[in-house]
């Protein structure tokens, strides 16, 4: 198998805190690799080590078989979570500057800058200073600056954060195009499950610095059970736990958990199980305020694996 990037027993410790604990990941060339985890799970620390910005306590990162600190810098482009922009430069000046920093020849640089501005719908703002751009435009420029030198690996750290649906579609199309048309390897960290599901070829879920699952989105969804999800809200949420206990005892219910005051029930042929569920609610003298049936999603997998507790 042709692996573009490998993390081998990657560990990062800060005094007593183990931020990343023996991470082993192999990322294939030309795939979009999703990186999921709750806040503080170790995603950004892992990414920083993978691109050579942070030295691991132990372990190593190999890019095309070479240590990440020995590779050519143009091999990796990173689009950070925060906007890293020069507020007093224009879009075009910012792109020209980064192209110069990567020693992109002028005859390649100029059409590349033009193309990027076009692809990311920034052509009209080419000569506008960054401080006068909207939030969505800044995000798109943030991405453009990461790929101006045409890196083989593009790391996108929560690129859709704060974007409106229109800008998000532009971004998603561009990420797909990088993979499908340019053959780039894309590493994507995100909190938006729909984004990870739609874009990623494979997804790694990490928590407490450890890799807990690595598979395709389809396989991950299958892993926690095929079938449907019943999303129910009771009028009296104090009955939620009693109902969950009752449903958990049913053989044909795979799982029942409470998420944000709602009860999420996974079951094969969920529609056929609805009368039974309604009967259990009535037995508790409860009343259903809202109910829907839907397909299993990546968010269900994520919650199932990492729990519902808040992470700060």
């Amino acid at each position: 198998m042709d692996y573009m990037l490998e993390a081998v027993d990657l560990t990062k410790k800060y005094d007593d805190l183990v931020a990343v604990d023996g991470l082993n990941i192999k990322i294939k060339k030309g795939e979009v690799f999703g990186f999921l985890g709750p806040n503080g799970a170790g995603k950004t620390t892992s990414i920083k080590m993978m691109v050579g910005l942070l030295r691991p306590t132990s372990g190593e990162v190999l890019v095309n078989g070479k240590d990440v600190h020995d590779i050519n810098k143009e091999a990796i482009g990173i689009c950070p979570q925060e906007l890293m922009l020069w507020e007093n430069l224009t879009c075009k000046e910012s792109l020209d500057l980064m192209a110069d920093m990567y020693e992109v020849p002028k005859k390649i640089r100029d059409p590349r800058v033009h193309q990027l501005l076009d692809d990311l719908f920034l052509s009209e703002k080419a000569d506008t200073v960054v401080s006068k751009l909207s939030g969505g435009m800044k995000r798109r420029l943030n991405l453009a600056l990461a790929v101006i030198h045409e890196p083989e690996i593009v790391v996108l750290d929560e690129p859709s954060e704060g974007l409106d649906p229109q800008s998000r579609r532009v971004l998603w199309n561009y990420i797909r195009a990088m993979r499908d048309e340019e053959g780039k390897t894309v590493i994507l960290t995100t909190h938006i499950m729909d984004e990870a599901d739609q874009l990623s070829d494979r997804i790694a879920i990490i928590d407490h610095g450890k890799l807990i699952r690595l598979d395709t989105p389809e396989n991950l969804k299958k892993e926690i059970g095929e079938g449907d999800v019943v999303d129910m809200k009771l009028s009296d949420i104090s009955l939620n736990q009693d109902l969950i206990n009752i449903l958990d005892d049913q053989d044909d219910v795979i799982s029942a958990v409470e998420v944000n005051g709602r009860i999420i029930i996974r079951a094969l042929g969920a529609v056929g199980k609805l009368p039974m569920m309604m009967e259990k609610v009535e037995n508790l003298n409860g009343r259903v305020a809202d109910i829907s049936v839907r397909q299993n999603t990546l968010e269900d997998v994520f919650i199932d694996l990492t729990g519902t507790g808040l992470r700060e």
């Binding site: 691109v51 910005l53 810098k73 143009e74 990796i76 482009g77 990173i78 950070p80 925060e82 906007l83 890293m84 922009l85 020069w86 507020e87 980064m98 920093m101 990567y102 020693e103 600056l145 030198h149």
Partner: peptide, 13 residues
């Protein structure tokens, strides 16, 4: 602070 130095640091500068 703004991270632009990090961006430059990632390059060949």
């Amino acid at each position: 602070e703004s991270g632009t130095l990090l961006r430059l640091k990632m390059s060949k500068m």
